[in-house]
């Protein structure tokens, strides 16, 4: 089936592919625009957290992360959002197929794939960049791979999870704030020199 509608990147009109900011040396920060990611909020019904954990483990091979944690294998898994609430993440929306049906009666599942803008932040100065806007201690002693936080950056609500010790972070903001968020991100990254990996699809 064809459609008159074409997917548009959340970062379209804001992010530009290529090298930006300080021109000397290697870029300190790499920004990877992540489009088409499958996202869904999972909110446990009262008293059903154990049942939810069991179903997710049996059916999807996922373990339910505790407060401030993320359990991801590759691009799939769960990020803690609030007590009894998680963000399910998959490479694409199709990766979350069957989730709502499997969790019927134990959790409310709401597709958020179109609701968030996600950018991956890596490179040698990734931590220094985020430290300028995140009021959470990102020092490796306090925040390491597999940890997650819901906080605000430049007065914009943001969810952040660290993927590896490089360090690599994924950042999610409400899609309608993508422009304002990019304004902060690009200005904050300029002093380190940054590279945007590809053009945002229009």
């Amino acid at each position: 089936m064809t459609s008159a509608w074409t997917p548009r990147s959340a970062w379209a009109g804001f992010a530009r592919a290529g090298r930006h900011g300080r021109p000397q040396g290697e870029p300190g920060v790499r920004l990877t625009l992540r489009d088409g990611v499958g996202l869904a909020t999972v909110i446990a019904a009262d008293g059903q957290e154990d049942a939810l954990g069991r179903i997710l483990a049996d059916r999807f091979g996922w373990s339910l992360p505790g407060s401030g944690a993320a359990t991801l294998v590759g691009e799939r898994g769960l990020v803690w959002s609030a007590p009894g609430q998680w963000l399910a993440v998959a490479e694409a929306r199709a990766g979350l197929q069957g989730l709502a049906e499997a969790l019927r009666g134990v959790a409310a599942v709401t597709d958020q794939s179109d609701a968030r803008a996600i950018v991956r932040v890596s490179g040698p100065r990734a931590r220094g960049l985020l430290s300028k806007g995140v009021a959470v201690d990102l020092h490796p002693r306090a925040f390491a791979a597999g940890q997650a936080a819901v906080t605000s950056i430049a007065h914009i609500g943001a969810q952040i999870w660290q993927r590896d010790e490089a360090p690599t972070y994924d950042l999610a903001v409400a899609r309608s704030f993508a422009g304002s968020f990019w304004s902060w991100l690009s200005h904050a990254a300029a002093e380190f020199g940054y590279e945007v990996d590809r053009e945002a699809e229009h």
Partner: peptide, 10 residues
């Protein structure tokens, strides 16, 4: 108790 120490602006 869930998120750890945070700025009171949150």
């Amino acid at each position: 108790p869930y998120c750890g120490e945070r700025d009171n602006g949150e």
